[in-house]
Design a protein around this nucleic acid. Structure first.
Lengths: 203, 203, 203, 203
DNA sequence: AATGAATGAGTATTCATTCAT
DNA sequence: GATGAATGAATACTCATTCAT
């Protein structure tokens, strides 16, 4: 039983991993299903056993990758809080943002791939498998942080949306093209901006 | 003499207009050059006489449309200032944002087409013809407004970048899918956010 | 098992045969891939499953056809030698030439198709599949004949090159246009010329 | 009068020269009429005033270039004969061949362009303008040389055909790819071969 | 669960040629 | 004689998808 299951999971992961490599190397539209299955060493039909179509595997990849970034930020924050238990909520948010931006700046290919779709994991997709189920947990995780220290906000959901969109939008051109400036130059403005955005949602 | 010139311009405009209609109706990648020329009533070769390729006409369209939105906002502001000469710079920025968002909300197809590329006219393209030349003037126009009343900022360029990216990123999902809320609900948060972002750049 | 293999081979051969017919009837550049697949009764994609592109099928055809001509000449020679074991090497070469020219004269379309590329099988192509592998053997076969009776030459490779180029160049216009004379008129001159060319390479 | 004539001739020559440059640089089929007229600085329609189509300008170019090579050889021979009045006809032919091959080896692009069509000027084309009329004179020139010293041959026309085809066929791959050997290595074999071919046509 | 041969609609792009001015 | 805007047929090649095995 488990053996066949493992085999399936391995094949699926191989397809995901290889297609991600190809997407980030050659670009999405220049990567064909043929390229993917050849790289993964499976037959063409097999691809369609595991994924509905090309967009389907792209969506899974975005969810998977953005989830990792978002959860990594949560972990970083938790570690920091264990040393500084008295952080304000705003400082916690800045910490999350810093982690996200730092992760992204280490992986410009991922930035290109996500293409400002960092928020994807939160909203745009029906929950079809475990990957997406976890993505939902991410959202909950963030709401929990917002409420830490009994902080209250005008609208938590809109606040998450606003800040996340702000980060992924501004960071995009800066990481990929260093335009209109490089990341280190922009970071202070960004953190100050986030701080101010928090104020905008403060009760 | 001018007759032939007029004829050319008319044909070019027809291609631009028809392709925009098709792009926003069927989507960009589902619109073929065949569709465009058929709709414009010209031969296929004619398309390639006026535009280098599909991306070329898309770029011209984005520049043209975003330029109109951006300039419309400037005009709206100027009209308002003629009645309220004492507006603060921040209020002027909010006015610009309001005009842009209002324009976009009236034309969701345009939002979809621009796909968060509102800033396109500002940065991403060499200046090759009159369309793009005007786009440059837009940028100057906005810098002028920032400096009205002798206001001073930490970095005008980064400020324009930050606010423009903020608007186009947040507005996108809201206008197209009313997610996570509709525009009227979001507007107060948005304006408050912009106000705060200005603070972040205030000297 | 073998069934699927047979089917593939049959389809491949059908493409080869039909494209040859079209190439020699309408001309190579006036034959489109559409024409070929329509004639072979397969889908367009199928063509590209079996051949890399148009030039690829042309190369295979040239190798295939020139190989047949060249090997046919070897067989003719072997049959003749079984009756006349004492042939001189020069007479053997004339015999080969006669067989080649006779074959070609029976098939002007092939002459046009090969377009002075008779030597193709010898030199110009990496050995990629069985067709081309055989082509290599042809070359060895000819070297063997040159060395029959212990004959020695200044340079066998250059000799084969010289004579093969001589035949394919002179025969071309004569078979296709009977210019500057017809083949029967030219043959004595040709054989005498070859005899003399052999002398030029005799040690 | 003459002025307009001169202008026409200049334009025609410009088209010929520029197209030759493009044909030998980019290749014939990769050179479009657009490329030619752009390079020559005339309008598209003008091309069709001077030449019937692409093949027409190619034919004129081949005639023009091969004529020059062939006449250059005649001049070289005449110069040599003024010093060595007692040359045998065979030596004269070798001298012609040497001149032709030397010219070609200095200009591989021309070899590629002529593509074994050196004999073109002699046979394949109706005489339509002065260029081609001259080409005919070339032929007469060569017959005259064959008859020098009262030499007699089985068939002068076939002899010219045979030797010319021999040269252009063998020299092609050698100059362009140094295959199967380089020109200096091949020259002795070539001259010996030509000498022998002359014997084949000797009465 | 996996294969891979077969599909065929679909696309962008080229270019020789024409003809009204 | 010259122009260049307009043509539109023609073509090679791709690729997501299916389905019999």
């Amino acid at each position: 039983m488990g053996k066949a299951e493992d085999n399936k999971r391995a094949k699926r992961n191989s397809l995901l991993q290889r297609s991600y490599d190809l997407f980030t190397t050659k670009g999405i539209s220049d990567t064909s299903i043929s390229d993917i299955v050849e790289s993964a060493g499976v037959a063409k039909g097999t691809f369609y056993f595991y994924f509905k179509d090309k967009q389907d595997i792209i969506d899974h990849l975005i969810a998977r990758k953005s989830e990792r970034i978002l959860l990594d930020a949560v972990n970083t924050l938790e570690f920091k809080r264990s040393n500084e238990p008295d952080m304000t909520t705003v400082d916690m948010i800045i910490t999350l943002a810093d982690s996200i931006v730092t992760d992204l700046s280490k992986d410009p290919k991922l930035v290109k791939f996500l293409n400002r779709n960092l928020t994807f994991g939160f909203y745009h997709r029906a929950v079809t498998d475990d990957t997406f189920i976890t993505a939902v947990n991410v959202h909950e995780e963030y709401e929990k942080i917002l409420h830490a220290n009994g902080a209250r906000w005008k609208d938590e959901s809109l606040m998450i949306y606003t800040i996340t969109e702000f980060i992924s939008a501004t960071v995009h051109s800066i990481i990929l093209y260093s335009k209109p400036c490089d990341l280190d130059t922009y970071k202070p403005y960004m953190f100050e901006s986030i701080r101010k955005l928090c104020e905008a949602f403060a009760l």
